[in-house]
């Protein structure tokens, strides 16, 4: 957690220095038309991967999300991702788990390749970045059966509306390719690391909206269709 805080603080720090430098340069030679715009368009994206992932999970889980990403100085790509996800799964011992809830992630990407915007040519990005993900949701775990074999007695537990807040860190890499004017396509691959762990023996959710199946780390894939304004 501490490292992540440091990471984000340093991003903010370098960003502020960059802003000051850019302003100074503008003051010095005001005759020059500023080559680097502060904000270079806003891209709105929709994740189309659920079409496939929902099928692959056999309907156990679903996750829909969209993103807003902007470009600062053609180099930094702050991003806000918002989504809704859920799960409904029954274990082999008939324990049923259901959840649904919203999630969001904030972070920034960096362009690995130096972007060149040549008029009449399409723009492509290779992005690497980090995100901090949040989800506040409730879940149900029902029909949890405990059987005392020797004495032949059993009890069944139902846990309803258990509230949970989860925070995780992501490292993301992806590409965005301009297919037609202002229409982008691309993918993002991410490695997620859970920061809020459950105490041993305490009830914990099987699925976390925005994170996926509960584990110390998880992978995620998005396939984005975007439009740049």
């Amino acid at each position: 957690m501490q490292h992540i805080c440091k990471f984000f603080i340093s991003i903010l720090f370098w960003l502020s220095i960059y802003t000051v430098n850019a302003q100074n340069q503008n003051n010095k030679d005001s005759v020059k038309i500023d080559k680097i715009n502060f904000i270079n368009g806003i891209r709105i994206e929709l994740d189309v991967s659920p079409v496939i992932t929902t099928l692959l999970s056999k309907g156990d889980t679903y996750s829909f999300e969209g993103a807003v990403q902007t470009t600062l100085f053609q180099k930094y790509f702050p991003v806000f991702e918002l989504g809704f996800a859920g799960a409904n799964r029954t274990s082999t011992e008939n324990v049923n788990f259901t959840t649904n809830g919203g999630f969001f992630r904030v972070g920034t990407d960096f362009s690995v390749m130096k972007p060149k915007k040549i008029p009449g040519k399409f723009q492509n990005f290779f992005l690497v970045g980090a995100r901090l993900g949040f989800s506040n949701f409730t879940y149900n775990m029902t029909n949890v059966n405990v059987y005392d074999e020797y004495w032949d007695v059993s009890k069944t537990y139902d846990f309803n509306d258990v509230a949970a807040t989860k925070v995780w860190f992501e490292i993301a890499a992806g590409i965005r390719v301009e297919i037609i004017n202002n229409i982008y396509m691309g993918w993002t691959l991410r490695n997620k690391r859970m920061l809020t762990n459950d105490a041993e023996g305490k009830i914990s959710p099987w699925y976390i909206p925005g994170f996926g199946v509960n584990a110390t780390s998880n992978w995620g894939v998005n396939y984005a269709l975007g439009y740049k304004f």
């Binding site: 799964r89 274990s91 082999t92 011992e93 324990v95 788990f97 775990m141 949890v144 059966n145 405990v146 005392d148 009890k155 537990y157 023996g201 305490k202 009830i203 914990s204 099987w206």
Partner: peptide
């Protein structure tokens, strides 16, 4: 007895 010591969705609970 510590009832419903949770293991996982697949394993359910145990009593310690």
């Amino acid at each position: 007895n510590n009832e419903n010591y949770f293991l996982s969705l697949e394993c359910g609970c145990i009593v310690t």
